[in-house]
Design a protein around this nucleic acid. Structure first.
Lengths: 229, 229
DNA sequence: TTAATAAATATACAGTGTTTAGTTATAAGG
DNA sequence: CCTTATAACTAAACACTGTATATTTATTAA
Protein backbone atom coordinates (compact mmCIF):
# COMPACT_ATOMS: atom_id res chain seq x y z
CA UNK A 1 0.00 0.00 0.00
CA UNK A 2 2.18 2.76 -1.25
CA UNK A 3 2.17 5.47 -3.83
CA UNK A 4 0.65 6.03 -7.22
CA UNK A 5 2.39 7.62 -10.17
CA UNK A 6 2.60 11.38 -10.06
CA UNK A 7 1.83 12.07 -13.63
CA UNK A 8 -1.22 11.91 -15.82
CA UNK A 9 -0.55 13.96 -18.92
CA UNK A 10 2.50 15.70 -17.55
CA UNK A 11 5.33 13.27 -16.89
CA UNK A 12 7.43 15.46 -14.58
CA UNK A 13 5.24 18.07 -12.96
CA UNK A 14 7.93 19.51 -10.71
CA UNK A 15 10.05 20.31 -13.73
CA UNK A 16 7.05 21.51 -15.71
CA UNK A 17 6.16 23.96 -12.94
CA UNK A 18 9.64 25.44 -13.01
CA UNK A 19 9.60 25.69 -16.79
CA UNK A 20 6.26 27.46 -16.74
CA UNK A 21 7.62 29.79 -14.07
CA UNK A 22 10.63 30.64 -16.27
CA UNK A 23 8.31 31.39 -19.17
CA UNK A 24 6.34 33.83 -17.06
CA UNK A 25 9.48 35.42 -15.64
CA UNK A 26 10.97 35.82 -19.11
CA UNK A 27 7.81 37.47 -20.36
CA UNK A 28 6.65 39.64 -17.47
CA UNK A 29 9.54 39.64 -15.01
CA UNK A 30 10.06 37.95 -11.70
CA UNK A 31 7.62 40.06 -9.68
CA UNK A 32 4.78 38.96 -11.94
CA UNK A 33 5.30 35.34 -11.00
CA UNK A 34 1.99 33.85 -9.91
CA UNK A 35 1.27 30.33 -8.76
CA UNK A 36 -2.25 30.55 -10.10
CA UNK A 37 -1.03 31.68 -13.50
CA UNK A 38 1.41 28.78 -13.61
CA UNK A 39 -1.40 26.41 -12.64
CA UNK A 40 -3.60 27.79 -15.42
CA UNK A 41 -0.78 27.22 -17.89
CA UNK A 42 -0.45 23.60 -16.87
CA UNK A 43 -4.21 23.12 -16.60
CA UNK A 44 -4.03 22.15 -12.96
CA UNK A 45 -5.25 23.94 -9.84
CA UNK A 46 -3.02 26.20 -7.83
CA UNK A 47 -2.93 24.11 -4.64
CA UNK A 48 -1.59 21.17 -6.66
CA UNK A 49 1.71 23.02 -6.83
CA UNK A 50 1.97 22.64 -3.08
CA UNK A 51 2.64 18.96 -3.61
CA UNK A 52 5.94 19.91 -5.21
CA UNK A 53 6.89 23.11 -3.41
CA UNK A 54 5.92 23.92 0.19
CA UNK A 55 5.18 27.53 -0.79
CA UNK A 56 5.89 30.13 -3.43
CA UNK A 57 9.18 31.14 -1.85
CA UNK A 58 10.45 27.57 -2.16
CA UNK A 59 9.71 27.68 -5.87
CA UNK A 60 11.57 30.97 -6.15
CA UNK A 61 14.53 29.54 -4.26
CA UNK A 62 14.59 26.62 -6.64
CA UNK A 63 14.57 29.00 -9.59
CA UNK A 64 17.37 31.05 -8.07
CA UNK A 65 19.50 27.95 -7.69
CA UNK A 66 18.84 27.06 -11.32
CA UNK A 67 19.79 30.58 -12.35
CA UNK A 68 23.00 30.48 -10.33
CA UNK A 69 23.84 27.16 -11.91
CA UNK A 70 23.29 28.52 -15.42
CA UNK A 71 25.32 31.59 -14.52
CA UNK A 72 28.08 29.47 -13.00
CA UNK A 73 28.21 27.25 -16.07
CA UNK A 74 28.79 30.27 -18.29
CA UNK A 75 31.50 31.54 -15.94
CA UNK A 76 33.28 28.19 -15.89
CA UNK A 77 33.02 27.79 -19.64
CA UNK A 78 34.43 31.27 -20.20
CA UNK A 79 37.35 30.66 -17.86
CA UNK A 80 38.25 27.27 -19.25
CA UNK A 81 38.11 28.47 -22.83
CA UNK A 82 41.30 30.41 -22.15
CA UNK A 83 44.63 28.64 -21.46
CA UNK A 84 45.38 28.38 -17.76
CA UNK A 85 48.65 30.26 -18.22
CA UNK A 86 46.89 33.35 -19.52
CA UNK A 87 45.39 34.52 -16.24
CA UNK A 88 44.64 38.06 -17.39
CA UNK A 89 42.94 36.56 -20.42
CA UNK A 90 40.85 34.38 -18.15
CA UNK A 91 39.92 37.35 -15.99
CA UNK A 92 38.84 39.30 -19.04
CA UNK A 93 36.92 36.34 -20.41
CA UNK A 94 34.85 35.80 -17.27
CA UNK A 95 34.26 39.53 -17.03
CA UNK A 96 32.81 39.61 -20.52
CA UNK A 97 30.85 36.42 -19.89
CA UNK A 98 29.37 38.02 -16.77
CA UNK A 99 27.86 40.86 -18.76
CA UNK A 100 26.86 38.62 -21.63
CA UNK A 101 24.92 36.28 -19.39
CA UNK A 102 23.24 39.19 -17.62
CA UNK A 103 22.13 40.71 -20.90
CA UNK A 104 20.91 37.40 -22.25
CA UNK A 105 18.90 36.72 -19.09
CA UNK A 106 18.18 40.09 -17.53
CA UNK A 107 15.23 38.73 -15.56
CA UNK A 108 17.41 35.98 -14.11
CA UNK A 109 20.07 38.50 -13.22
CA UNK A 110 17.55 40.57 -11.31
CA UNK A 111 16.16 37.44 -9.73
CA UNK A 112 19.59 36.61 -8.33
CA UNK A 113 21.15 39.97 -7.55
CA UNK A 114 18.14 42.22 -7.19
CA UNK A 115 15.20 41.89 -4.83
CA UNK A 116 12.34 41.53 -7.26
CA UNK A 117 10.04 39.31 -5.23
CA UNK A 118 8.11 41.35 -2.63
CA UNK A 119 8.62 39.68 0.71
CA UNK A 120 11.22 37.18 -0.42
CA UNK A 121 14.61 36.72 1.21
CA UNK A 122 16.82 33.97 -0.21
CA UNK A 123 17.75 31.30 2.34
CA UNK A 124 21.54 31.52 2.38
CA UNK A 125 22.09 27.90 3.38
CA UNK A 126 20.28 26.55 0.34
CA UNK A 127 21.54 29.05 -2.19
CA UNK A 128 25.13 29.25 -1.01
CA UNK A 129 26.57 26.25 -2.88
CA UNK A 130 25.42 27.30 -6.33
CA UNK A 131 26.10 30.98 -5.58
CA UNK A 132 29.62 30.30 -4.39
CA UNK A 133 30.30 28.04 -7.34
CA UNK A 134 29.46 30.80 -9.80
CA UNK A 135 31.16 33.69 -8.03
CA UNK A 136 33.98 31.38 -7.07
CA UNK A 137 35.21 31.33 -10.65
CA UNK A 138 36.35 34.93 -10.30
CA UNK A 139 37.90 34.15 -6.94
CA UNK A 140 39.82 31.24 -8.39
CA UNK A 141 41.43 33.36 -11.08
CA UNK A 142 42.31 36.15 -8.66
CA UNK A 143 43.75 33.60 -6.26
CA UNK A 144 45.95 32.14 -8.98
CA UNK A 145 47.16 35.62 -9.82
CA UNK A 146 47.97 36.14 -6.17
CA UNK A 147 49.91 32.89 -5.98
CA UNK A 148 51.82 33.92 -9.07
CA UNK A 149 52.74 37.13 -7.24
CA UNK A 150 50.97 39.23 -9.82
CA UNK A 151 48.58 41.10 -7.55
CA UNK A 152 49.43 44.79 -7.55
CA UNK A 153 48.10 45.91 -4.19
CA UNK A 154 50.19 47.54 -1.51
CA UNK A 155 47.46 47.66 1.08
CA UNK A 156 43.86 46.56 1.06
CA UNK A 157 41.08 47.05 3.62
CA UNK A 158 40.50 44.01 5.79
CA UNK A 159 37.15 42.44 6.43
CA UNK A 160 35.65 43.45 9.75
CA UNK A 161 36.62 40.96 12.43
CA UNK A 162 33.16 39.57 13.24
CA UNK A 163 32.53 38.84 9.58
CA UNK A 164 35.75 36.93 9.08
CA UNK A 165 33.88 33.74 9.98
CA UNK A 166 31.24 34.21 7.34
CA UNK A 167 33.99 35.06 4.91
CA UNK A 168 35.74 31.80 5.69
CA UNK A 169 32.64 29.96 4.50
CA UNK A 170 33.33 31.20 1.01
CA UNK A 171 36.67 29.44 1.11
CA UNK A 172 34.93 26.13 1.64
CA UNK A 173 32.81 26.44 -1.46
CA UNK A 174 35.01 28.56 -3.67
CA UNK A 175 38.13 26.52 -3.20
CA UNK A 176 41.00 27.45 -0.94
CA UNK A 177 41.58 31.14 -1.46
CA UNK A 178 43.34 33.79 0.52
CA UNK A 179 41.29 36.50 2.20
CA UNK A 180 43.07 39.05 0.04
CA UNK A 181 41.90 37.28 -3.10
CA UNK A 182 38.36 37.15 -1.76
CA UNK A 183 38.46 40.84 -0.90
CA UNK A 184 39.77 41.93 -4.27
CA UNK A 185 37.21 39.70 -5.96
CA UNK A 186 34.53 41.57 -4.06
CA UNK A 187 35.70 44.91 -5.41
CA UNK A 188 35.88 43.56 -8.92
CA UNK A 189 32.44 42.04 -8.53
CA UNK A 190 31.04 45.33 -7.22
CA UNK A 191 32.42 47.26 -10.18
CA UNK A 192 31.09 44.81 -12.70
CA UNK A 193 27.75 44.58 -10.97
CA UNK A 194 27.50 48.37 -10.82
CA UNK A 195 27.60 48.77 -14.58
CA UNK A 196 25.60 45.68 -15.45
CA UNK A 197 22.79 46.37 -13.00
CA UNK A 198 22.42 49.95 -14.23
CA UNK A 199 22.51 48.75 -17.83
CA UNK A 200 19.78 46.21 -17.20
CA UNK A 201 17.67 48.74 -15.35
CA UNK A 202 17.95 50.97 -18.42
CA UNK A 203 19.75 53.70 -16.48
CA UNK A 204 22.94 53.64 -18.52
CA UNK A 205 23.01 54.57 -22.20
CA UNK A 206 25.06 52.23 -24.40
CA UNK A 207 28.64 53.40 -24.87
CA UNK A 208 30.50 52.73 -28.08
CA UNK A 209 29.49 51.12 -31.31
CA UNK A 210 28.33 47.82 -29.85
CA UNK A 211 27.25 49.21 -26.52
CA UNK A 212 29.92 47.45 -24.50
CA UNK A 213 32.84 49.84 -24.82
CA UNK A 214 32.29 51.31 -21.38
CA UNK A 215 32.30 47.84 -19.91
CA UNK A 216 35.51 46.92 -21.73
CA UNK A 217 37.01 50.15 -20.45
CA UNK A 218 36.20 49.12 -16.90
CA UNK A 219 37.51 45.59 -17.34
CA UNK A 220 40.79 47.06 -18.53
CA UNK A 221 40.77 49.53 -15.64
CA UNK A 222 40.46 46.62 -13.26
CA UNK A 223 43.32 44.62 -14.70
CA UNK A 224 45.56 47.68 -14.94
CA UNK A 225 44.87 48.70 -11.36
CA UNK A 226 45.09 45.34 -9.64
CA UNK A 227 47.31 43.09 -11.79
CA UNK A 228 50.92 43.18 -12.90
CA UNK A 229 52.10 42.63 -16.48
CA UNK B 1 -21.53 76.36 -6.49
CA UNK B 2 -17.93 75.36 -6.28
CA UNK B 3 -15.82 73.15 -4.12
CA UNK B 4 -15.84 72.19 -0.46
CA UNK B 5 -12.80 71.92 1.78
CA UNK B 6 -10.85 68.74 1.42
CA UNK B 7 -10.15 68.05 5.06
CA UNK B 8 -12.13 66.94 8.05
CA UNK B 9 -9.78 65.73 10.73
CA UNK B 10 -6.75 65.51 8.49
CA UNK B 11 -5.77 68.95 7.23
CA UNK B 12 -3.62 67.86 4.29
CA UNK B 13 -4.62 64.38 3.22
CA UNK B 14 -2.32 64.21 0.19
CA UNK B 15 0.66 64.84 2.44
CA UNK B 16 -0.67 62.51 5.11
CA UNK B 17 -0.97 59.68 2.57
CA UNK B 18 2.64 60.11 1.54
CA UNK B 19 3.80 60.22 5.14
CA UNK B 20 1.89 57.04 5.94
CA UNK B 21 3.43 55.45 2.85
CA UNK B 22 6.93 56.35 4.03
CA UNK B 23 6.21 54.85 7.41
CA UNK B 24 5.20 51.58 5.80
CA UNK B 25 8.17 51.60 3.45
CA UNK B 26 10.58 52.28 6.29
CA UNK B 27 9.13 49.42 8.30
CA UNK B 28 8.44 46.72 5.71
CA UNK B 29 10.14 47.91 2.54
CA UNK B 30 8.78 49.34 -0.66
CA UNK B 31 7.23 46.14 -2.03
CA UNK B 32 4.99 45.91 1.01
CA UNK B 33 3.38 49.24 0.22
CA UNK B 34 -0.39 48.79 0.26
CA UNK B 35 -3.06 51.38 -0.42
CA UNK B 36 -5.48 49.60 1.86
CA UNK B 37 -2.95 49.52 4.68
CA UNK B 38 -2.34 53.24 4.26
CA UNK B 39 -6.08 53.83 4.29
CA UNK B 40 -6.43 51.81 7.50
CA UNK B 41 -3.70 53.91 9.08
CA UNK B 42 -5.49 57.12 8.22
CA UNK B 43 -8.90 55.71 9.09
CA UNK B 44 -10.26 56.31 5.62
CA UNK B 45 -11.27 53.89 2.90
CA UNK B 46 -8.88 52.82 0.17
CA UNK B 47 -10.75 54.39 -2.76
CA UNK B 48 -10.51 57.78 -1.03
CA UNK B 49 -6.82 57.78 -1.93
CA UNK B 50 -7.86 57.90 -5.58
CA UNK B 51 -8.95 61.49 -5.02
CA UNK B 52 -5.31 62.40 -4.52
CA UNK B 53 -3.47 59.91 -6.72
CA UNK B 54 -4.90 58.41 -9.92
CA UNK B 55 -3.44 55.02 -9.00
CA UNK B 56 -0.83 53.37 -6.84
CA UNK B 57 1.93 53.96 -9.36
CA UNK B 58 1.31 57.70 -9.22
CA UNK B 59 1.78 57.58 -5.47
CA UNK B 60 5.02 55.66 -5.93
CA UNK B 61 6.22 58.19 -8.49
CA UNK B 62 5.49 60.96 -6.05
CA UNK B 63 7.48 59.13 -3.37
CA UNK B 64 10.37 58.60 -5.77
CA UNK B 65 10.49 62.31 -6.52
CA UNK B 66 10.52 63.07 -2.81
CA UNK B 67 13.33 60.57 -2.33
CA UNK B 68 15.35 62.07 -5.18
CA UNK B 69 14.86 65.49 -3.67
CA UNK B 70 16.07 64.33 -0.27
CA UNK B 71 19.01 62.60 -1.94
CA UNK B 72 19.79 65.67 -4.03
CA UNK B 73 19.69 67.89 -0.97
CA UNK B 74 22.29 65.75 0.74
CA UNK B 75 24.48 65.78 -2.37
CA UNK B 76 24.28 69.56 -2.69
CA UNK B 77 24.95 70.08 1.00
CA UNK B 78 27.98 67.79 0.86
CA UNK B 79 29.40 69.56 -2.17
CA UNK B 80 28.88 73.07 -0.85
CA UNK B 81 30.39 72.23 2.52
CA UNK B 82 33.78 72.08 0.80
CA UNK B 83 35.45 75.18 -0.68
CA UNK B 84 34.88 75.49 -4.41
CA UNK B 85 38.62 75.50 -5.04
CA UNK B 86 39.06 72.03 -3.55
CA UNK B 87 37.45 70.02 -6.33
CA UNK B 88 38.90 66.68 -5.28
CA UNK B 89 37.64 67.40 -1.79
CA UNK B 90 34.21 68.09 -3.19
CA UNK B 91 34.26 64.87 -5.21
CA UNK B 92 35.22 62.90 -2.13
CA UNK B 93 32.58 64.62 -0.05
CA UNK B 94 29.71 63.84 -2.39
CA UNK B 95 30.99 60.27 -2.74
CA UNK B 96 30.83 59.80 1.01
CA UNK B 97 27.49 61.56 1.22
CA UNK B 98 26.14 59.18 -1.45
CA UNK B 99 26.86 56.14 0.68
CA UNK B 100 25.79 57.83 3.87
CA UNK B 101 22.38 58.72 2.47
CA UNK B 102 21.92 55.22 1.06
CA UNK B 103 22.71 53.63 4.40
CA UNK B 104 20.48 56.01 6.28
CA UNK B 105 17.56 55.35 3.92
CA UNK B 106 18.16 51.94 2.38
CA UNK B 107 14.51 51.53 1.46
CA UNK B 108 14.54 54.86 -0.36
CA UNK B 109 17.71 53.90 -2.17
CA UNK B 110 16.11 50.70 -3.40
CA UNK B 111 12.97 52.61 -4.27
CA UNK B 112 14.98 54.90 -6.55
CA UNK B 113 17.68 52.67 -7.98
CA UNK B 114 16.22 49.21 -7.61
CA UNK B 115 12.97 47.84 -8.98
CA UNK B 116 11.14 46.99 -5.80
CA UNK B 117 7.57 47.60 -6.92
CA UNK B 118 6.22 44.68 -8.99
CA UNK B 119 4.90 46.10 -12.24
CA UNK B 120 6.15 49.62 -11.72
CA UNK B 121 8.26 51.54 -14.21
CA UNK B 122 9.13 55.11 -13.30
CA UNK B 123 7.85 57.68 -15.83
CA UNK B 124 11.06 59.36 -16.96
CA UNK B 125 9.43 62.66 -17.84
CA UNK B 126 8.15 63.21 -14.32
CA UNK B 127 11.13 61.89 -12.43
CA UNK B 128 13.85 63.40 -14.61
CA UNK B 129 14.06 66.86 -13.02
CA UNK B 130 14.62 65.66 -9.46
CA UNK B 131 16.78 62.76 -10.64
CA UNK B 132 19.00 64.99 -12.74
CA UNK B 133 19.29 67.52 -9.95
CA UNK B 134 20.66 64.92 -7.57
CA UNK B 135 22.97 63.11 -9.97
CA UNK B 136 23.87 66.44 -11.54
CA UNK B 137 25.88 67.36 -8.48
CA UNK B 138 28.48 64.77 -9.42
CA UNK B 139 28.40 65.93 -13.01
CA UNK B 140 28.98 69.52 -11.97
CA UNK B 141 32.12 68.69 -10.03
CA UNK B 142 33.51 66.50 -12.80
CA UNK B 143 32.76 69.23 -15.31
CA UNK B 144 34.63 71.78 -13.24
CA UNK B 145 37.57 69.42 -13.06
CA UNK B 146 37.44 69.09 -16.82
CA UNK B 147 37.38 72.85 -17.31
CA UNK B 148 40.36 73.13 -15.01
CA UNK B 149 42.16 70.65 -17.23
CA UNK B 150 42.47 68.16 -14.42
CA UNK B 151 40.78 65.18 -16.06
CA UNK B 152 43.28 62.40 -16.57
CA UNK B 153 41.76 60.50 -19.48
CA UNK B 154 43.50 59.85 -22.76
CA UNK B 155 40.54 58.26 -24.47
CA UNK B 156 37.07 57.44 -23.31
CA UNK B 157 34.25 55.46 -24.98
CA UNK B 158 31.67 57.63 -26.66
CA UNK B 159 27.94 57.30 -26.17
CA UNK B 160 26.23 55.42 -28.96
CA UNK B 161 25.04 57.81 -31.62
CA UNK B 162 21.30 57.28 -31.28
CA UNK B 163 21.48 57.89 -27.54
CA UNK B 164 23.33 61.15 -27.87
CA UNK B 165 19.99 62.95 -27.94
CA UNK B 166 18.82 61.46 -24.68
CA UNK B 167 22.19 62.24 -23.23
CA UNK B 168 21.84 65.87 -24.24
CA UNK B 169 18.74 66.05 -22.06
CA UNK B 170 20.91 65.57 -19.02
CA UNK B 171 22.77 68.72 -19.93
CA UNK B 172 19.57 70.73 -19.71
CA UNK B 173 18.88 69.67 -16.15
CA UNK B 174 22.37 69.09 -14.82
CA UNK B 175 23.80 72.36 -16.05
CA UNK B 176 25.94 72.79 -19.10
CA UNK B 177 28.37 69.91 -19.06
CA UNK B 178 30.56 68.32 -21.67
CA UNK B 179 29.70 64.85 -22.89
CA UNK B 180 33.03 63.66 -21.54
CA UNK B 181 32.12 64.88 -18.07
CA UNK B 182 28.76 63.15 -18.31
CA UNK B 183 30.39 59.92 -19.44
CA UNK B 184 32.98 59.90 -16.69
CA UNK B 185 30.27 60.71 -14.17
CA UNK B 186 28.44 57.61 -15.34
CA UNK B 187 31.43 55.39 -14.64
CA UNK B 188 31.92 56.93 -11.24
CA UNK B 189 28.25 56.52 -10.50
CA UNK B 190 28.32 52.88 -11.59
CA UNK B 191 31.26 52.12 -9.30
CA UNK B 192 29.70 53.80 -6.34
CA UNK B 193 26.34 52.22 -7.00
CA UNK B 194 27.95 48.79 -7.36
CA UNK B 195 29.32 48.80 -3.83
CA UNK B 196 26.41 50.57 -2.19
CA UNK B 197 23.72 48.40 -3.76
CA UNK B 198 25.53 45.20 -2.76
CA UNK B 199 26.06 46.57 0.74
CA UNK B 200 22.40 47.39 1.13
CA UNK B 201 21.37 44.01 -0.20
CA UNK B 202 23.58 42.46 2.47
CA UNK B 203 25.83 40.82 -0.12
CA UNK B 204 29.02 42.59 0.88
CA UNK B 205 30.59 42.09 4.30
CA UNK B 206 31.79 45.27 6.01
CA UNK B 207 35.44 46.07 5.30
CA UNK B 208 37.58 47.82 7.87
CA UNK B 209 36.92 48.98 11.39
CA UNK B 210 33.92 51.14 10.59
CA UNK B 211 32.75 49.17 7.58
CA UNK B 212 33.48 51.88 5.06
CA UNK B 213 37.15 51.23 4.33
CA UNK B 214 36.40 49.44 1.10
CA UNK B 215 34.28 52.34 -0.05
CA UNK B 216 37.01 54.85 0.82
CA UNK B 217 39.43 52.68 -1.08
CA UNK B 218 37.23 52.90 -4.17
CA UNK B 219 36.70 56.64 -3.85
CA UNK B 220 40.46 57.06 -3.79
CA UNK B 221 40.83 54.68 -6.73
CA UNK B 222 38.44 56.87 -8.68
CA UNK B 223 40.23 60.13 -7.98
CA UNK B 224 43.65 58.57 -8.63
CA UNK B 225 42.53 57.06 -11.93
CA UNK B 226 40.57 59.97 -13.37
CA UNK B 227 41.94 63.16 -11.80
CA UNK B 228 45.28 64.95 -11.80
CA UNK B 229 47.03 66.29 -8.73
C1' DT C 1 -10.91 -7.25 -3.86
C1' DT C 2 -9.62 -4.33 -0.42
C1' DA C 3 -7.04 -1.09 2.06
C1' DA C 4 -3.56 2.43 2.08
C1' DT C 5 -1.92 6.61 0.34
C1' DA C 6 -0.02 10.15 -2.78
C1' DA C 7 -1.91 13.59 -5.69
C1' DA C 8 -5.26 16.24 -7.29
C1' DT C 9 -9.47 19.21 -6.73
C1' DA C 10 -13.03 22.12 -4.45
C1' DT C 11 -13.80 25.45 -1.39
C1' DA C 12 -12.77 29.06 1.51
C1' DC C 13 -10.14 32.95 3.80
C1' DA C 14 -7.70 37.07 3.96
C1' DG C 15 -5.37 40.07 1.41
C1' DT C 16 -4.40 43.17 -2.83
C1' DG C 17 -5.51 47.31 -6.59
C1' DT C 18 -9.25 49.24 -8.79
C1' DT C 19 -14.13 50.47 -10.58
C1' DT C 20 -18.74 51.90 -9.95
C1' DA C 21 -22.54 53.81 -7.73
C1' DG C 22 -24.31 56.24 -4.10
C1' DT C 23 -23.79 59.40 -0.10
C1' DT C 24 -22.20 63.35 2.48
C1' DA C 25 -20.54 67.83 3.26
C1' DT C 26 -19.43 72.23 1.79
C1' DA C 27 -19.67 76.56 -0.56
C1' DA C 28 -21.66 79.72 -3.73
C1' DG C 29 -25.98 81.82 -6.23
C1' DG C 30 -30.43 83.38 -6.25
C1' DC D 1 -32.09 81.32 3.92
C1' DC D 2 -32.37 77.79 0.94
C1' DT D 3 -31.38 75.39 -3.02
C1' DT D 4 -27.99 73.43 -6.07
C1' DA D 5 -23.68 72.09 -7.91
C1' DT D 6 -19.85 69.43 -6.85
C1' DA D 7 -15.65 67.74 -4.54
C1' DA D 8 -14.72 64.13 -1.36
C1' DC D 9 -15.83 60.27 0.70
C1' DT D 10 -18.00 55.47 1.60
C1' DA D 11 -20.04 50.92 0.36
C1' DA D 12 -20.00 47.26 -2.42
C1' DA D 13 -18.23 44.57 -5.85
C1' DC D 14 -14.70 42.53 -9.30
C1' DA D 15 -10.74 40.18 -10.43
C1' DC D 16 -6.83 39.00 -8.74
C1' DT D 17 -3.16 36.96 -5.30
C1' DG D 18 -1.01 33.05 -1.82
C1' DT D 19 -2.40 29.57 1.13
C1' DA D 20 -5.04 26.23 4.40
C1' DT D 21 -8.39 22.64 4.87
C1' DA D 22 -11.26 19.06 3.54
C1' DT D 23 -12.53 15.95 0.10
C1' DT D 24 -12.18 13.23 -3.84
C1' DT D 25 -9.58 10.50 -7.23
C1' DA D 26 -6.42 7.27 -8.82
C1' DT D 27 -3.02 4.00 -8.21
C1' DT D 28 -0.56 0.40 -6.02
C1' DA D 29 0.48 -3.15 -2.78
C1' DA D 30 -1.36 -6.70 0.37
Amino acid sequence: MVRPTLAKQIPNLQQAIKEAAWRHIARAGAPALSLRAIARDLKITAPAIYNYFPDRDALVTSLIIEAYTSFGDSQLAARDAVPAQDLIGRLTAIGLAYREWAHRFPQRYQLIFGTPIPGYQAPMMEVMPSAARSLGVLVSVVEQLRRAGRLKVRSFPKVKAEFQAGFEMWKKYGGEADILSLSISMVIWARVHGIVSLEIAGSLPPFGASGDDLYLYEINSITRQFMKE
